[in-house]
């Protein structure tokens, strides 16, 4: 089983996130980290590997991140959690790429990771915590020409009647809870309902230091630099404006039930009742 888990290095969502002059997200000037939503993907990738069994080199989880120099932090954290190898695609030309460009780089990197012995599952988080479009898994599946099973809250491997291995997920949709499955190779994304991610253990932290990390540039992937980055993006931001901070309104204490009455008065004054 060869699993690739895609993770993104994002600005800390509790810090002051903002735009640069060129209207791209500032990814250098703010503290960053492995996107919390991708930790769930790492966890599920590790669990899949553990379910298949032994720790031999036949079963690998490779963490893949496309991002600036410091994205190596996200790769390292994933290795500490238990991934076996890391790939960091870093290239000045990538900065400012939109989802179309990013998915292209990821697809080429996945293909290269699987060049020798193929790959079985690409695991992704449900969305990034910064751009939060949530479209990369679908785009990646489209580029790799494989099915996608997305937004899973439970993930398991099973076999279909033809003896093929399938990946089956449970998805808690808006109108129904669904079981969705597809034959490997497959792209899968998981939600924050899939189970808490493990913390790196001391042993994991020490072991990570010896794990192989490959650093690839666009030319290593055979991607034309003209096709990615801000200049090649298929979308342009015209302007961005900070929302005026909400000014705190009236807050009353509920002394002797006065709160309920004041609440109803407020709702009536705004014509909600």
């Amino acid at each position: 089983m060869n699993i690739v888990v895609c993770v993104k290095y994002v600005p800390d969502s509790t810090a002051d996130r903002h735009f640069e002059e060129d209207l791209t997200v500032d990814r250098v000037g703010v503290d960053g980290l492995l996107s919390e939503l991708d930790e769930y993907a790492v966890e599920q990738a590790l669990q899949l590997k553990e379910k298949v069994g032994d720790d031999s080199a036949d079963h690998m989880v490779t963490v893949l991140s496309v991002g600036p120099e410091r994205a190596s932090d996200a790769v390292r954290k994933s290795l500490q959690m238990g991934c076996d190898a890391g790939v960091h695609v870093v290239d000045a030309a990538i900065a400012g790429s939109d989802a179309v460009g990013t998915s292209l780089v990821l697809a080429k990197a996945v293909a290269k990771i699987g060049a020798e012995s193929g790959w079985d599952v690409v695991m992704c988080g449900m969305a990034s915590t910064d751009g939060s479009m949530g479209v990369v898994p679908a785009m990646l599946a489209e580029r790799l020409d494989v099915p996608a099973v997305t937004l899973g809250s439970e993930v398991e491997l099973s076999a279909d009647s033809g003896g093929n291995t399938t990946l089956r997920i449970r998805r808690d949709g808006d109108t129904a809870t669904e079981t969705i499955e597809a034959t490997l190779p497959v792209v899968c994304s998981v939600t924050d309902q899939s189970g808490e991610a493990r913390y790196p253990s001391f042993k994991g932290i020490m072991a990570a230091k010896k794990k192989p990390v490959a650093t690839w540039s666009l030319s290593d992937l055979g991607v034309d630099a003209e096709l990615v980055g801000l200049a090649a993006a298929y979308t342009v931001v015209e302007d961005s404006q900070a929302r005026p901070p909400r000014t705190a309104g009236q807050v009353v204490a509920d002394d002797d039930g006065a709160g309920a009455h004041a609440l109803v008065e407020f709702l009536a004054s705004k014509k909600f009742i």
Binding site: R246, A248, G249, Q250, V251, V252, A253, D254, G257, G259, A260, H261, A262, L263, V264, F266, L267, I273
Partner: peptide, 21 residues
């Protein structure tokens, strides 16, 4: 963030407000 807030126990405030509405 609020335009209007009540500091109180929701299990008391909400039923009283519901009744008044």
């Amino acid at each position: 963030l609020v335009d209007f807030g009540v500091v109180g126990d929701l299990q008391k405030v909400l039923p009283a407000a519901t009744e008044e509405i």
